[in-house]
């Protein structure tokens, strides 16, 4: 009996850690991995009629996808929009984080709260607020009309790719700010002083020291914005109209009114694969780029 007790207690760190992790891993497997595997298998089936699905495995749905120029163009557009949004967000958010990390001394706490707060507020409402601004009778148009700058409402504001890009940039900014700030804040200031001491100019210090050291945050921000925005549904549905439509809106349609679950599953799988491939390439090249920089 003692031997049994001893085995129970002398569990290694591995065993202890995994017993603590088991509920989380169980959740991931049951609610994410198995459903995703099932989605993958559904992408090989055929929707025969509204209620009926043929379960013979086939690659036909993937062929369907690439034969429908609409789907392919939506995929390309989704990736393009996400890419632009990621780039704009990074470029605009980086100086803000840089300022707070290196220049703010007083009331840092207040700045940090301001930085984090939008992250938690309703995504739906953040997107919706742009509908108020960009709408035909919205804030923008009514102000310009009132000021006499324009005589007719600008209709291109809403329901366009640009509107989607602006809205996404705003709605996802909070996701970029945090990883960027954390990585900049971590940088030991003595590195920067040492670099200045060794005769590098401010500009060189930034490119050779600060930026490479902040790279984990840059990659984090890229992942955290690019991946979800490719699959964003709310913004194109509310703001995008026909012009700003993205792949998610079609996927939703396949699961909804078009009712072609296999094709929807195939589209979702293609979206996921694309996203994974692109992020792998992006993080790899960014890492290589830094190695060359430093």
């Amino acid at each position: 009996m003692f031997q049994a007790w001893r085995n129970l207690y002398s569990k290694s760190d591995n065993a202890k850690a995994y017993s603590l992790l088991s509920p989380a891993l169980f959740l991931i497997i049951l609610v994410m991995l198995i459903p995703m595997a099932l989605m993958l298998s559904f992408s090989s089936f055929t929707q025969v009629s509204m209620m009926e699905i043929d379960f013979t495995p086939t690659f036909q749905r993937y062929i369907d996808f690439f034969e429908k120029s609409l789907l392919v163009s939506l995929l390309i557009k989704s990736v393009k929009i996400s890419f632009i949004v990621t780039l704009i967000t990074l470029l605009t958010a980086y100086p803000v984080c840089y300022y707070i990390a290196f220049y703010v001394k007083k009331n840092k706490m207040l700045w940090l709260v301001l930085l984090t707060l939008p992250f938690w507020t309703s995504y739906l409402l953040r997107v919706f607020s742009w509908k108020i601004i960009l709408g035909t009778k919205g804030v923008f148009n009514s102000t310009l009309l009132g000021a006499g700058i324009i005589s007719e409402p600008l209709t291109f504001l809403m329901y366009s790719e640009e509107a989607v890009i602006i809205t996404l940039t705003h709605a996802w900014a909070a996701f970029a700010l945090l990883p960027l700030y954390v990585s900049l804040e971590k940088i030991d200031f003595s590195y920067i002083e040492a670099a200045r001491d060794l005769g590098l100019s401010k500009f060189e210090v930034f490119w050779k020291v600060t930026f490479p050291l902040s790279l984990p945050g840059v990659i984090g921000a890229i992942l955290i914005i690019f991946i979800p925005t490719v699959g964003d549904y709310v913004t194109p549905a509310l703001i995008g109209g026909t012009e700003g439509r993205m792949l998610s809106n079609m996927i939703q349609a396949y699961f909804g009114k078009i009712n072609n679950i296999p094709l929807g599953a195939a589209s979702a799988t293609i979206m996921l694969t694309t996203v994974i491939l692109i992020t792998a390439i992006v993080s790899y090249t960014t890492k290589r780029l830094t190695q060359r920089l430093s």
Partner: peptide, 14 residues
């Protein structure tokens, strides 16, 4: 990290 729509769709199917 994964687009939420993919989580949603796969849970829907199962």
């Amino acid at each position: 990290l994964i687009p939420e729509i993919i989580l949603a769709v796969s849970i829907l199917i199962i």
